[in-house]
Design a protein around this nucleic acid. Structure first.
Lengths: 205, 205
DNA sequence: TATTGACTAACGAACGAACGTTAGGTATAA
DNA sequence: TTATACCTAACGTTCGTTCGTTAGTCAATA
């Protein structure tokens, strides 16, 4: 009755290792040790090492599509924005902090992000994925937010793409910092608060 | 009379390879091939593979200390600021664009940056170096610039640390984008121009 | 000037260990 | 009975490294 989950364990361990060492520098033996089986047993579940990477990437991609805050937002949908009208600077700061906590601590998302970071100069497919997930989707999301806040007359009218870059880039940089030095998370959260407050002040209508 | 430079050629090829594949995923044979010698000959110049990495890091560090725009600036030194008084938004945009071109195309700086990017989750020393070079020094530099522009009454008074984060982070993000997709450099340069112009507008006195 | 010897950089060959992978056997459970 | 998950053993290849040799350079010596 117990469904066998070795395959999932392998994928999880693989993402763990790829997110620290990268694909090439991770060996089949390392991976097998992490799962607690012999390395030959991996081949009962995957055709070869590349197949493991492909499946991990597939999993990361699917997890992203299912759980990404940024890819799923729709600022033109009243259903999506109805609980976001009349947001103050503090409200937005809290919202962003919550999103950052999620992005930082969700294991799939954070390990996927690190893997893309490591592989971005060797694997063209992963480089593209990196740009989409950590640049284009983020920028789109915050451009939507800026347009929404301008429409609501919370912020003054200016190029929303540039506003989004100015608003989101510090957050992106601070997420990378926390990936490297997790003990600085609280320091970063305070910076985020200050950043959002100051952003709203200077862009206020 | 000709000074032998094989050692330098090895270091250059090593940085090339480490900046794409990382240290572990780069083999001694690959490196020897890139230099055009047999792999055993590498050991006439370095004790072992780790010694090559250590020396490459040392070289990157020295190159950074000698050539980094950010580590060498001193906004309290009149000698440094004397040609920077009365800068308009366009002047600053041009200045930043020039600095970005340099940072993007100087081979040592760009390859060093990529190597640190790849190694940041496995090598604590390189993670620290990454934070210093691409976060702390950058933030310090731009905090200095903000203080300078506030002192000059070009910009209004606000938290210069937050201003520096808002000003520099988009630039950091765009440099990373260009590292991944160099063909987007001109698009990025236009974004930088817009960003700087808009930044000066909203923060104007 | 010619000879010697010390030093160097590069080499081919080989080392044991680890790599990714395959084959074949065994135990478990449907 | 058949299929599956895991095993041990081994494959050929590549890994980082060591060894002993060779060819060339250069300074001191004869």
């Amino acid at each position: 009755m117990e469904k066998n989950n070795t395959r999932e364990e392998i994928l999880e361990a693989a993402l763990d290792l790829f997110a620290v060492n990268g694909y090439e520098a991770t060996s089949i033996s390392q991976l097998a040790d992490a799962v607690g089986i012999r390395k030959a047993s991996l081949y009962s579940h995957f055709a070869n090492k590349q197949d493991i990477l492909d499946t991990v990437v597939e999993t990361v991609l699917k997890g992203y599509a299912d759980h990404s805050i940024f890819a799923r937002a729709d600022w033109n949908n009243p259903e999506y924005t109805k609980d976001k009208t009349g947001m103050t600077a503090e409200d937005v700061a809290k919202l962003i902090q919550g999103q950052m906590r999620y992005i930082l601590h969700d294991t799939h998302i954070s390990k996927g992000r690190k893997m893309l970071m490591i592989e971005q100069f060797r694997n063209a497919e992963l480089a593209e994925l990196h740009t989409k997930q950590n640049y284009e989707d983020v920028l789109n999301y915050f451009t939507g937010l800026m347009r929404f806040l301008i429409r609501e007359e919370t912020l003054k009218n200016a190029d929303p793409g540039i506003m989004a870059a100015q608003f989101s880039s510090p957050i992106t940089v601070w997420i990378n910092l926390c990936d490297r030095e997790p003990e600085r998370e609280e320091e970063v959260m305070e910076l985020v608060r200050k950043h959002v407050m100051q952003f709203f002040e200077i862009y206020q209508k």
